[in-house]
């Protein structure tokens, strides 16, 4: 798994410079957690890595072609079941039974037939995370995936992510140092990079 190298990245939105000459390396096959206060450019950095934003200057090298992304919002098709939402991105490459077993593993086994609109916020979050994991990309980006979840559930989900992304590159944004510690890997403070 190759490293992802970010060099001299700058991004402005109008008058505001969100990323200013940011340089860092994400080690391939490892988990990197990024912390930092709101508005310090964490999401912008992730979006540039995923190709959803274009940098004003600087470069990003080593990003694999296939990238999984757990957005801050769940971005689920509310009228469809969890399995259908995952199949939206995996197609029929994965059998339904595999998707169901992943959802069961993360505590959604009793609600598989329901449309996602009937799920609680925490349940939707888990579907979005399983979707990102099952996409099978070499890079999984997660933008505050554990926000609003209770500690026990966070740990279940973190264990799940770690189990199924072994030897893959994972970049995870979090506000909580405890989450970053539990996820393991490298911890980066965005404030140190973006001065």
């Amino acid at each position: 798994m190759t490293d992802i190298k970010v060099d001299g990245l700058t991004k402005r939105f109008g008058e505001k410079t969100v990323l200013k000459d940011v340089s860092l390396t994400f080690r391939g096959g490892e988990i990197t957690c990024i912390k930092g206060p709101s508005g310090c450019g964490k999401t912008t950095l992730l979006r540039i890595l995923a190709g959803l934003e274009t940098e004003d200057s600087g470069s990003v090298l080593g990003v694999p072609e296939k990238v999984g992304f757990v957005f801050q919002e769940d971005r689920l098709s509310e009228d469809f079941s969890a399995v259908s939402n995952i199949r939206l991105v995996t197609g029929k490459t994965l059998p339904k039974s595999t998707i169901e077993s992943h959802l069961k593993e993360i505590g959604l086994g009793n609600d598989l037939a329901k449309p996602v609109r009937e799920y609680s916020g925490g349940m939707k979050r888990r579907v979005a995370i399983v979707r990102g994991v099952l996409y099978g990309a070499d890079l999984l980006i997660m933008d505050e995936p554990f926000k609003g979840l209770d500690t026990e559930l966070k740990r279940t989900i973190m264990d799940y992510v770690k189990k199924y992304t072994a030897r893959k590159t994972v970049i995870c944004v979090t506000h909580e140092p405890e989450e970053a510690r539990y996820m393991g890997g490298i911890l980066i403070d965005m404030e140190d990079l973006n001065k």
């Binding site: 190709g51 959803l52 992304f69 957005f71 919002e73 971005r75 098709s77 939206l88 991105v89 996409y135």
Partner: peptide, 14 residues
């Protein structure tokens, strides 16, 4: 929803 469309684009949904 543009967020959903962005998600679909990222995940290369047909």
């Amino acid at each position: 929803d543009p967020n959903m469309l962005e998600m679909a684009r990222l995940y290369d949904v047909s």
